[in-house]
Amino acid sequence: MTTYVYGIARRGHGRLPEQMGGIGDPPRPVRTVEQGDLVALVSDAPEGLRPKRRDLLAHQNVLAEAGAGGAVLPMRFGGVSADDEAVRAVLAEHEERYLERLEALDGKVEYNVKATHDEEAVLHQVLAENAELRALSDANRKAGGGSYEDKLRLGERIAAAVQQREVSDAALVESALDDSAEERSPGPQSTGWLANISYLVPRDATAEFVAAVDALRERAPHLVVQVHGPLPPYSFTG
């Protein structure tokens, strides 16, 4: 029977969610594997585990529940060990590093911030700032939209201007939130956001962080800013 690992905590962790339902259908009960000063949160791994919605959610829920009681190093979804003994071996081998990370993450949570442009608002801005584009747009409008070539010419220049704003607005998001968090980690690339950033925030300072996001939204109404958190500190496991 293979062992699925959700996360790693200190042995002294307040309350780990034992007997909570984990991955699989029916859900495999969550249990712990202890080694030295560490404890791994595990369950049996179901045969043919795939990244199905219910399993991803179970992984996330176990970590959220465990994280509410103390520091937990969250595993990426889908790590399966040969058996409990192999889990102990890994804990023993990396004990020092895991303890150091747990110390660093103690009392902290992750917030993920994603931003896109509100298209209409950003087009307003781009036109407001550039008289030449405004004149082109105006000419097209007067010509009933303009010819195919006219549209391409205008659209290409607008797209370039919006792309420039994507870069400067990404920097704006970073600078607006950096002071309210301890660490920043870029989110996974190529998922289509102008900014996708994870922040490590002390639990007792999350209200300030959320207030900083609100202030950013107010300051930059052309941005659509999403915040997700508090989350297990996936992006800060070192």
Binding site: P51, Q60, L73, M75, G79, P188
Partner: peptide, 21 residues
């Protein structure tokens, strides 16, 4: 879940000795 999926699948601790789904 949908909004944090990429973190669950792309971030988090990876242990080389484990098999990955």
């Amino acid at each position: 879940l949908y909004d944090v999926l990429e973190l669950v699948l792309d971030r988090g601790l990876v242990i080389d000795a484990f098999v990955r789904v």
